[in-house]
Simulated scan of single mutants.
Amino acid sequence: MEFCPTCGNLLQYELPHMGRPARFFCPSCPYVCHLESKVKIKRRQRLVKKEIEPVFNKDDMKIGGSETDATCPSCGHGRALFSQVQIRSADEPATTFYQCMKCERMWRED
C-alpha cells in the first residue's frame, strides 16, 4: 500500500494505457507517481543461521547425570546418563535427555 505524501490518502493504481506507464494517483489531490516497468534490486541480504545452543552439553551430563538402562539409537549400547528438565508448561511431562556411555551420542524423549 502506498499513501499520498501530500494529503495522506491511499493511492490508487492505474494500469498503463496508450504509451503512458502505470502509475499511482491520489483521488483527492493532483499527486501522481509514475512506476518504472522494471524493478531494480538495490541490495541482497544474506541470512545468517544462528548457532543452536544445546540445553545440556556433554560435560553437564557427566557431572549431573544419573545412570540408567537405556538403549542408544546409534550404537545399541544399553547404558546411558540421563537428566530430566521441565521445558514445556507445568501440566506437560518433563523431557528426559540421554547420553550414551559408549559413543556419547545425545538424544531426548518427550
Rank of each mutant, 00 (worst) to 15 (best):
residue 24 F to M: 13
residue 14 E to W: 06
residue 5 P to K: 14
residue 40 K to M: 08
residue 89 S to L: 04
residue 94 A to Q: 13
residue 35 L to S: 04
residue 72 C to M: 03
residue 75 C to H: 01
residue 88 R to H: 13
residue 31 Y to I: 00
residue 11 L to Q: 07
residue 71 T to H: 02
residue 85 V to Y: 14
residue 57 N to L: 04
residue 42 K to V: 10
residue 27 P to L: 07
residue 20 R to Q: 14
residue 15 L to M: 12
residue 93 P to F: 04
residue 86 Q to V: 03
residue 77 H to G: 05
residue 65 G to A: 06
residue 12 Q to R: 14
residue 69 D to L: 12
residue 39 V to Y: 03
residue 69 D to E: 15
residue 97 F to R: 05
residue 88 R to F: 11
residue 84 Q to S: 15
residue 55 V to C: 02
residue 12 Q to E: 15
residue 73 P to W: 05
residue 36 E to M: 08
residue 28 S to Q: 13
residue 26 C to Y: 01
residue 54 P to V: 03
residue 43 R to M: 09
residue 41 I to H: 08
residue 40 K to Q: 11
residue 88 R to L: 15
residue 39 V to P: 00
residue 16 P to A: 15
residue 82 F to G: 03
residue 30 P to F: 08
residue 38 K to M: 08
residue 29 C to T: 02
residue 77 H to C: 03
residue 43 R to S: 12
residue 22 A to T: 06
residue 27 P to I: 01
residue 21 P to Y: 06
residue 21 P to H: 10
residue 8 G to C: 07
residue 76 G to D: 03
residue 12 Q to N: 12
residue 54 P to C: 05
residue 84 Q to W: 02
residue 70 A to C: 05
residue 89 S to I: 03
residue 9 N to G: 04
residue 72 C to R: 02
residue 6 T to Y: 11
residue 35 L to A: 06
residue 76 G to L: 05
residue 60 D to M: 14
residue 61 M to H: 04
residue 18 M to S: 13
residue 96 T to Q: 10
residue 75 C to M: 02
residue 96 T to A: 03
residue 24 F to K: 14
residue 42 K to I: 10
residue 95 T to I: 02
residue 34 H to M: 06
residue 36 E to Q: 12
residue 84 Q to Y: 04
residue 52 I to E: 12
residue 61 M to Q: 05
residue 18 M to P: 00
residue 5 P to D: 03
residue 82 F to Y: 15
residue 71 T to D: 07
residue 15 L to H: 13
residue 82 F to P: 01
residue 49 K to S: 10
residue 82 F to H: 13
residue 50 K to M: 09
residue 62 K to I: 06
residue 31 Y to D: 01
residue 66 S to I: 08
residue 79 R to D: 07
residue 54 P to L: 03
residue 45 Q to W: 07
residue 53 E to F: 05
residue 20 R to T: 13
residue 95 T to E: 04
residue 83 S to A: 15
residue 60 D to C: 03
residue 49 K to E: 12
residue 32 V to E: 06
residue 45 Q to M: 08
residue 23 R to V: 01
residue 58 K to A: 11
residue 72 C to P: 01
residue 70 A to K: 13
residue 73 P to H: 01
residue 82 F to D: 05
residue 45 Q to A: 06
residue 7 C to E: 09
residue 12 Q to P: 00
residue 83 S to M: 15
residue 96 T to Y: 09
residue 61 M to P: 03
residue 60 D to F: 09
residue 55 V to D: 03
residue 23 R to W: 02
residue 88 R to E: 08
residue 50 K to Y: 02
residue 86 Q to F: 05
residue 35 L to V: 07
residue 19 G to T: 01
residue 43 R to F: 07
residue 79 R to G: 01
residue 61 M to D: 04
residue 84 Q to H: 04
residue 50 K to W: 00
residue 62 K to A: 09
residue 46 R to F: 08
residue 64 G to K: 14
residue 78 G to V: 00
residue 63 I to E: 15
residue 50 K to D: 08
residue 26 C to T: 01
residue 34 H to I: 02
